[in-house]
């Protein structure tokens, strides 16, 4: 795992140094639309994630933060 991370880091430092941005700011109109937001309504998404988190073994790498249980 550490070797893979080191290799990726090395590639980033060396291989990407000559790469130029290929999507200019003026080309990002579609990406700025609310439909393309990761979480347009964070409160609804946070509650939804909480519903899943308390009913499963897995957690993390989502939008949920904070503590508490509320899980019976």
């Amino acid at each position: 795992m550490i070797r893979i991370a080191a290799l990726l880091g090395l590639l980033t430092l060396t291989g990407c140094s000559n790469v130029q941005p290929w999507v200019m700011p003026y080309e990002r109109e579609a990406l700025a639309d609310p439909l393309m937001s990761y979480s347009r309504d964070p409160m609804m998404d946070k509650h939804r994630q909480h519903v899943f988190d308390v009913r499963a073994g897995a957690r993390g790498a989502g939008t949920s933060q904070g503590g508490g249980c509320g899980c019976n």
């Binding site: 700011p25 003026y26 080309e27 990002r28 109109e29 990406l31 700025a32 639309d33």
Partner: peptide, 10 residues
């Protein structure tokens, strides 16, 4: 407005 929002993505 969308263009301004797009610019803010940078």
């Amino acid at each position: 407005l969308l263009m301004a929002a797009a610019a803010s993505l940078s």
